[in-house]
Design a binder for these strands. Structure first.
Lengths: 328, 328
DNA sequence: TTGTAGGCGTTATCAC
DNA sequence: GTGATAACGCCTACAA
């Protein structure tokens, strides 16, 4: 900036004023703008950050094993939704991938070092060092995903997994299924546990533990494996709630291998309403997750705090309606 | 830092020395470390960046329509590979999503504003404003993906789409297929165009334009549509090269609907060796893309420049071997 | 309207 | 070993 002040024959203060916006004479402005072009000047944001005490950047962090980061059909939508909201407010979303202990330590520094003004954190767990830091330095943040056991000052946004699982299971039963099972993924995570709870709640006394196949991941292969387990345990099974669409697709594959048709022999429903849902034959009945809305809502929560507005502590649950297609 | 210097009764210089590493007496160090804990001090990275003239951060940018960003099976692997390499060198990878004109403008400022010391750019196109900027300020960078028509000073890493497409097509032919077609996706992009070129090259004079179905995207639905087109144009078709595994999966679905078996009636091969490849029945023969290696190689290219080492201008092609499974 | 000068939080270069 | 002090590049009163 020194250079351009010199070549334009003005003081640095005046240059700063045209860069931002203040009272500058037309002649001075013209000279400065020309000088800027000549010198190829670009403002140094680091210096600006230092004096302004803000970076106009918001971190977006997914605290999941990276396999899931790659596979989860919702993460991308959440990111895009968040980015759209942040972008509109002229904030740069910076996505940080945590894939090792080392990443965690480095990101911790990054967050507390003034690189970002806030953070959106997906799938936080209370014990995670990153959320300790966020809480510790009171970085304006929002959680996406796990509603419970988190820092009391940080809001979250998610969906009601229990209610939606319950609802879609009820409708599965309403199609006349008598022996309905579930392929329950990742029951060690809130979403997985909640979907199982909802399933059980819908069935009430008819719930049969033997008709629940637990699998570790929300993926296709686990779905196929879970379905085979279920068929083995009870060949008369005629309804299945899969914990995600990918799981459901895997289940349908196993069903086809076993010679069963969907929905005639077995009705199957999924969860997520991801691209899997319309990739299967027939298309999946499932629970719609408004990923984009979740992301933009989380962004909004952070932006509000940045503006000093008050927000509800606790969480906001976005609607996740059942979408009925042909698989059940 | 001022505070902790005061409470520890030393100068800021000494504090800085214990933070980084220099000669400090044990007593001073102890006093300072205690003060740090008491005050809950965290170093301000923005200030450090300003004086150090570096941020220890590298941007990672995907210049694709966001739909592809969500669907592409390779992007995630490339990201992870890049992150691993950068992390090991103690650099923070920051992922920037571009999803609008506005994003482009903002990212442009971000890159030239000192937020990052370098950038990895996936799927760059020469006309993109972002690569203009990168070239303009000589930001140490590497491109992933499109080998041609780019900035001469910036290296790239990718695979040889032409050679691999040619190789897998040849092996398809070698299984005895007489009427082999291709479902060609995104022929307006380098990867898509190259795979088509390789296909044509493998077939030589036997190449029949009518057996090429062009579809816009590398996805499942396009694969199914392309396959139906092909079957319609020539019911005797007995071999198909799909431009990606997702496309191949869609093609197999269409084949099944048409009552054809794979590989008996029709042999099909894909490209990517993504999770799709082992999700189909039978598993797909395909071209392996070493996504992780590509990412870490790109990171390495950037790190080298940062260290002032010389690198080869031009590009590096990573090996992308055919993996033979059961679908052909 | 414009110039001057102090300060943002660090690091680095000196003397001491 | 340690303490001043000058940058780093920018913004913003305050004066002129």
């Amino acid at each position: 900036m020194h250079d351009i002040a010199a070549t334009a024959g003005v003081s640095r203060g005046t240059v700063s004023r045209v860069l931002n916006g203040g009272y500058v004479s037309a002649s001075a402005r013209a000279a400065i703008e020309r000088a800027i072009r000549e010198v190829g000047y670009v403002p140094n944001t680091a210096a600006r950050n230092l004096v302004m005490q803000r970076s106009q950047a918001i971190g977006f962090i997914v605290l999941e094993p990276h396999s899931l980061f790659l596979e989860d059909p919702n993460i991308g939508g959440i990111m895009l939704g968040a980015n759209a909201a942040l972008s509109a407010a002229d904030y740069q979303m910076v996505n940080l991938v945590v894939d090792s202990e080392r990443d965690t330590a480095r990101i911790t520094r990054y967050l507390s070092g003034g690189f970002v003004d806030g953070a959106i954190i997906v799938s936080a767990r209370s014990h995670d060092p990153i959320i300790q830091v966020v809480g510790g330095i009171a970085l304006p943040s929002a959680f996406v995903g796990h509603p419970r056991d988190l820092h009391p000052d940080i809001p979250y946004v998610g969906i009601d997994n229990i209610a939606s699982a319950e609802e879609i299971t009820r409708r599965l039963v309403a199609t006349g299924r008598r022996r309905v099972g579930m392929i329950a993924s990742a029951v060690d995570r809130d979403s997985g546990a909640d979907r199982l709870i909802g399933f059980q709640r819908a069935l009430g006394p008819a719930f049969d533990e033997a008709l629940v196949a637990e699998v570790p991941l929300y993926d296709f292969a686990c779905g196929a494996k879970g379905m085979r387990t279920l068929l083995e345990r009870d060949p008369t099974i005629d309804g299945v709630f899969a914990a995600s669409d990918a799981v459901a697709a895997g289940a349908m594959e196993a069903l086809r291998e076993a010679g069963r048709t969907v929905p005639d022999d077995v009705g199957v429903v999924g969860f997520d309403d991801s691209s899997w849902a319309t990739r299967t034959r027939p298309h999946l009945s499932t629970v719609h997750q408004p990923a984009g809305d979740i992301g933009s809502r989380a962004a909004d929560l952070v932006l509000r705090q940045l503006r000093g507005e008050s927000i509800d502590r606790g969480g906001v649950l976005m609607p996740s309606p059942v979408v009925w297609r042909a698989s059940a």
